[in-house]
Design a protein around this nucleic acid. Structure first.
Lengths: 140, 140
DNA sequence: CTAATTTCTCTAGCGACTGGAGGAGCAAGC
DNA sequence: GCTTGCTCCTCCAGTCGCTAGAGAAATTAG
């Protein structure tokens, strides 16, 4: 039950000190209580909450989503449909990004394959970049 | 050979007006000549250059890379090894991102599959987020 | 008691734009 | 010639999720 300082919280949750202050400012962490000397103090609850945040961030959830997930996590009796929806949206977002990156990959791969290592004059990479019409890429 | 205004350049290259001014400020486009009334004027060369930039951006190249590519494109006699290197680096970067996103995807997919649509109390999604040890994810 | 470490607040910077305020230029219709 | 409406100008602020620095104060170790 002994309170810990921000540096200790940082170590226990693997989140940098300025990031913790940033999360507090953004409302993901409650405003920490302070010592006489104005230093933030934390407890086990904060460690858990911050680890939750870190993990969700590692999985790519945005701050807003995490805020919602934290709110929901505090209401254990409610059905978890909203939690599910957030995760599902995030999954769709990731799928989207993977698809777009895969498209880019193909196009760059092709450019590289066509480059004959000659002079820039006849370099396919430069040509393709210069002329949008020459490539696979479409999206408007 | 008639000069065009920034709005027309914007339409012809499919790049928004403020973005054109931004590119000028960042040195990707030369400082445009001006009319008596201080408005920027452009020509066909600028349209080509801006399209090159747009296409490279769509492919995910960073501004710095594009600056280098533009410099190289202006020296057609030089070997295209550097162009190749930039594209290769970018490909590696994309591969990296795809790999990481694929990892995230798997983990979120798993969470979703395990969620039994009950109450938040027993929701696997919340559990996994709360306890880092429970998941596939490792990286530090 | 001193020195080293930690913490505090405040501010600015990253990348690549995007959008708004407030004002001036310009073409066309009356 | 004048008004209307569009385009353009500059400058500034905001986005996202941090990260880093300055300069000062509190705490801890030796």
């Amino acid at each position: 039950m002994k309170p810990i300082a921000i540096g200790e919280l940082s170590r226990q949750a693997s989140v940098k000190v300025p990031t913790i202050r940033f999360y507090e400012e953004r409302g993901l962490l409650p405003r920490a209580s302070r010592t006489e000397g104005n230093r933030r103090t934390y407890g086990a609850v904060d460690v858990r909450r911050l680890r939750f945040i870190r993990h969700a961030r590692e999985l790519g959830f945005e701050i807003e989503d995490i805020r919602a997930l934290l709110d929901l996590a505090e209401q254990p009796e409610r059905p978890c449909g909203e939690v599910d929806a957030i995760a599902r949206r995030h999954l769709a977002d990731i799928d989207d990004r993977i698809a777009r990156l895969t498209g880019l990959r193909a196009e760059i791969r092709l450019m590289l394959d066509q480059c004959s290592q000659g002079r820039i004059q006849e370099c396919r990479i430069v040509e393709v970049l210069a002329d949008h019409g020459e490539c696979l890429h479409e999206e408007h």
